[in-house]
């Protein structure tokens, strides 16, 4: 298996791409940060380890990046799903990017902590795309990864077990924490609208004032707009400074998509999107 530096360097020196988006070390010896390498020597700094948390697909729709022409991007399996979804939604063209997939051995929950069964990110447990489905080159080797408890799934089951009133109270409290910094939106590779509905003022569908109601509606519409689209990279939750368990929404919607339509977001770039297509046999038990 080729090494990331060799692959990246070859892509740059041959002129196949104009830039490679990857990870470099930052701060202490564990933390990484995204880096856009435009010169072959830049790639010497690239690292791949259990601390490459960012979903680099988010940069592909940024104007600063699309300006660079053809770019390569390092992608974990989940990140590659985001790229697939972006292709499905016409945000990038497959021929404009080169995906350097990595055989992923899991990532940590957050920087500055050791990678072990306690701290493995929830999304890495039961991951079925440790080798990315969409990639033009593949680097790294698969190794055994620690197992851990899927706490978020447990929380979802916990919420489901509550009655409507309790669920409302639970989410009202959680959304109450929201400071509308929109870090969730910023970190999400699939939030690429030129203007988010929450910023639309005529009419003001979602109140942006700091009221509980605005918070509730914002988080509700965000979950809905990602329904059938969220690929579960969980960057929104990691970005949230107020620790709102956003994956409880996104993952629940993904579970509904799976149950109802057997749909997995970001698995097939030629597949019709969940919203935007229909089946004559779609469930209508709830319609009188």
């Amino acid at each position: 298996m080729d090494d990331i530096k060799t692959v990246a360097k070859e892509l740059l020196t041959s002129g196949k791409v104009n830039a490679v988006i990857g990870y470099i070390r930052y701060g202490n010896d564990k933390r990484t940060k995204p880096f856009i390498a435009q010169k072959p020597e830049d790639v010497d700094k690239f690292v791949i380890n259990n601390f490459i948390l960012n979903n680099l697909a988010v940069y592909l729709t940024r104007k600063e990046v699309s300006k660079l022409g053809k770019v390569a991007v390092i992608a974990k399996g989940c990140d590659a799903k985001a790229i697939t979804a972006l292709i499905q939604e016409n945000q990038i063209k497959k021929e404009d990017i080169h995906v350097i997939g990595i055989n992923c051995n899991g990532v940590t929950k957050d920087f500055d902590i050791d990678f072990n069964s306690e701290n493995i990110a929830g999304k890495c447990l039961n991951c079925d795309v440790r080798t990315p489905k969409l990639c033009d080159s593949l680097v790294g080797a698969l190794a055994d990864i620690p197992s851990g408890e899927d706490l978020k799934l447990k929380m979802i089951r916990g919420v489901e077990a509550k009655n409507a009133e309790e669920r409302w109270d639970y989410f009202e409290d959680e959304f109450n924490k929201c400071i509308k910094c929109y870090a969730c939106r910023q970190a999400c590779p699939l939030c690429y609208c030129e203007q988010c509905i929450v910023d639309k003022s005529i009419p003001r569908w979602i109140e942006s004032s700091a009221t509980k109601r605005g918070n509730f509606s914002w988080n509700l519409i965000r979950a809905f707009h990602l329904a059938g689209r969220c690929i579960g990279c969980n960057e929104c939750e990691r970005a949230c400074p107020m620790d709102i368990p956003l994956s409880l929404l996104n993952r629940k919607m993904a579970m509904i998509a799976k149950d109802e339509f057997n749909y997995d977001a970001g698995t097939d770039m030629n597949a019709p999107t969940l919203v935007g297509s229909y089946d004559l046999k779609d469930n209508e038990d709830f319609i009188e």
Partner: peptide, 22 residues
């Protein structure tokens, strides 16, 4: 109505999950 139905499936389940009585 087919497109609407598909949206409703996702939406009504989300509302229910968030505690708005179905």
């Amino acid at each position: 109505n087919y497109h609407a139905r598909r949206r409703w499936i996702m939406f009504h389940k989300l509302l229910d999950y968030l505690g708005i009585d179905e």
